[in-house]
Write a protein that binds this DNA or RNA. Structure first.
Lengths: 216, 216
DNA sequence: GATGGAATCTGAACATGTTCAGACTGAACG
DNA sequence: CGTTCAGTCTGAACATGTTCAGATTCCATC
């Protein structure tokens, strides 16, 4: 390839991600990554703090892919249900090649204090990216005032739930997760609509209040 | 102590759990566990498949404690909200001494293939124990027919969510989780009540249908 | 008591994430 | 050119989870 030489950091990153995808996280050793990249073991640690940090790179990679795909998928789609459905399906598309890694990814990401946790500061960039996607999905949809501010965050949480489900989904092609998305997206849209019904509104207010209080 | 001699397995288990609680999971080495128990390193692996398996023992321990406390806490308490609140607070009480270990506990529980994973088909003694507790909490409460069968399972899921939140809760004494329970328990009770409202019932039916379909 | 096989225990060896003291490289400066 | 120095790279060493080929103990059976 022409262009500027690939930096060592990028070389290590690319090699690691490729090996993770080819052989899985556990059976990819840092020595292998270094060897395949043609550098000494220590180099990986010079550029990345730990093996988990390299997983974080994968996480970022996959989320950027999601964002790229989302732009096209949302175009011309209107209504919260269809938009959510489209957003989540392309998300699953982006995740698909890494399904085998999901287990380890989640096990790593779920630890509090782990840089890979979606709630950690280190993941801010990634998490914000994903939350922005959900804010976009809401755009143009008619949402009761009480929910408008919190909805993107709540949807993002729901997406994390879908992701967790996907990781555990051993059905061929993760069909069950696709079915979950098909069922959940219109359902969530309905729930949002119902949130405006008189007897329900006050419950929604309470939910939102609790979510906000607890988020702090 | 008098009584039957403690089995080696029990000795290792007890020693490991003590050390985990005293020094945390990461800084307790299998060698230390073995040494403190007065046996060779290999013995721990003869009785337990891995270090994670020992965490699983702690998980079981804590859940049994929860069940013990729950019996007393539910006595004389009526209404779904108060019962749920009581159940969850004693759950947090039981978990409290292990908060530092929460990370590993969750990491073990969340791993696909783990018996106590909420999404795995294999149902484990611990998970059943916890689901039974939630079934008990529902008892005596007035619940719309549509929800009656699924509610214990859904509440158990909610409890897993609370647990996940608790693990990440760094506030002193995990106050924020307590606040979450105080807010969420009555709210869930209200939601269940609202489920009977005409315009809402059909949405609830859909939620239940989706939950059931996806659970299979 | 003797025997044989199963259960249990031993600790050295192995694999792998991680660290680190030093070697190397190239650019800036005199 | 020689010096210096920050940035980068090296690979051996370390810590720890895990395995395993034997040693030992236990116990039913004769």
């Amino acid at each position: 390839m022409s262009g500027p030489e690939e930096s060592t950091r990028e070389l290590v990153r690319r090699t690691a991600l490729r090996l993770f995808r080819e052989r899985g996280f556990a059976s990819t050793t840092m020595r292998t990554v270094a060897t395949e990249a043609g550098v000494a073991t220590g180099v990986a640690y010079y550029w990345f703090g730990s093996k988990a940090d390299l997983v974080q790179e994968l996480y970022l990679d996959v989320n950027e892919d999601h964002a790229r795909r989302a732009a096209g998928a949302l175009e011309g789609v209107s209504g919260l249900g269809p938009r959510l459905r489209a957003l989540w399906h392309v998300g699953l598309d982006a995740f698909e090649p890494s399904h085998g890694l999901g287990a380890e990814l989640v096990a790593v990401a779920i630890r509090p204090g782990a840089a890979e946790s979606p709630f950690s500061r280190a993941s801010d960039a990634t998490a914000r990216l994903s939350r922005d996607l959900h804010a976009q999905a809401v755009q143009g949809a008619r949402v009761p005032a009480a929910l408008r501010d919190e909805l993107p965050y709540l949807l993002w949480l729901a997406w994390l739930g879908v992701t967790l489900f996907w990781v555990h989904d051993a059905s061929p092609g993760q069909r069950r997760t696709r079915a979950l998305v098909d069922g959940a997206a219109p359902l969530i849209a309905r729930l949002v609509r119902v949130a405006g019904v008189p007897g329900v509104r006050s419950v929604v207010d309470d939910v939102v209040r609790l979510a906000r209080q607890v988020r702090a």
